[in-house]
């Protein structure tokens, strides 16, 4: 600093209370996080704001675009809409089945990959493969796999002398088929993280289990499973969100059918907005979906996450 006035000189000679301080956590976090959050807010807040606007209006295309303010009418009307109530149940069924199946499959795959086996790298790569498949491609694959015309079950049935095609895309089982496809798609990712977690379990615990003569199941239940709680919780949340959001697979595989047997909330929103062009009504539905997603994650956190998160 240049030679200043007498006042400055005195200031400099007294031990300063606040010299060059390190950047505080808050300031550093602010510098790094703010631009990102602003970007996220913009690209999330605008669509969200626009969706709120739409949900409060009745938007008419025929005879010129008009948006009539209707207040909460859309939000109230959906509750007297049978297809909406139906969609809630289908979404619930699809989500619960998907999440449970994904967790079980993830645990099975991870347990297998955790064994000492030959060509472990190849086995892992093969078991991870479904994860590389996009959800629309999974929709194509499972659609073709279970449909009576092209399905594997038909081929097997004929091989053993059957004369009829086997079709699982019927009203009764279509949601289960979707859930299996969804679990098939998500399980490798879960297995991958569970495996990483299993690798951190000390080998001594397994020696101890062997000394105590635990059966394979008991070993799994009391040695392997408890340390996995946190990862399982995280992925229960993630797969719940992903399942409730799932759209493209359902669109490609079933188109919500047969009838409305697989019309989940996402599909109903799509149908209302893009086919019926009832944008306000679709937007109102999508807010309910958003609340359900947040509610479900929060619920999982309340009953499970609070106990296992550090």
């Amino acid at each position: 600093m240049a030679v200043g006035s007498a006042g400055q000189a005195i200031q400099a000679s007294t031990p300063s209370r606040k010299p060059r301080r390190e950047m505080s956590d808050t300031r550093f976090a602010f510098l790094i996080g703010l631009p990102v959050l602003v970007f996220l807010m913009l690209v999330v807040a605008y669509p969200l704001g626009y969706a709120i606007y739409m949900s409060l209006h009745q938007i008419v295309f025929f005879g010129g675009y008009r948006a009539n303010f209707v207040g909460l009418k859309n939000f109230i009307d959906v509750w007297s809409d049978k297809s909406f109530i139906n969609a809630i149940w289908i979404t619930l069924r699809f989500t619960v089945e998907s999440v449970v199946l994904t967790m079980i499959l993830g645990l099975c795959l991870a347990s297998i990959m955790n064994q000492r086996i030959r060509m472990a790298g190849l086995v892992r790569t093969l078991l991870f493969l479904p994860w590389c498949v996009s959800s629309y491609a999974a929709g194509l694959m499972f659609g073709q796999l279970v449909r009576g015309q092209t399905g594997i079950l038909t081929t097997i049935s004929f091989t053993f002398g059957g004369t009829q095609g086997v079709d699982l895309m019927g009203r009764a089982t279509v949601v289960e088929v979707l859930a299996v496809a969804n679990a098939w798609l998500m399980a490798p990712l879960v297995a991958f993280f569970l495996l990483a977690n299993m690798k951190t379990i000390p080998k001594r615990l397994y020696d101890l289990a062997a000394i105590d003569r635990l059966t394979a199941w008991e070993t799994f239940r009391y040695v392997t499973l408890p340390p996995l709680q946190f990862t399982l919780f995280v992925f229960a949340s993630i797969t719940t969100v992903l399942s409730m959001k799932m759209f493209d697979m359902i669109l490609i595989m079933t188109g919500g059918g047969p009838g409305t047997a697989s019309a989940t909330l996402t599909y109903q929103i799509y149908k209302r907005s893009f086919k019926d062009l009832n944008l306000g009504y679709g937007a109102a539905m999508s807010f309910y979906l958003l609340f359900f997603i947040l509610g479900a994650t929060f619920l999982i956190y309340l009953v499970w996450g609070r106990r296992v998160s550090r």
């Binding site: 669509p47 929103i269 958003l290």
Partner: peptide, 14 residues
């Protein structure tokens, strides 16, 4: 978390 939870189908039109 909110951004994770947003379903693409509801932000498509906006």
């Amino acid at each position: 978390l909110l951004a994770v939870a947003l379903p693409p189908v509801s932000t498509l039109i906006p």
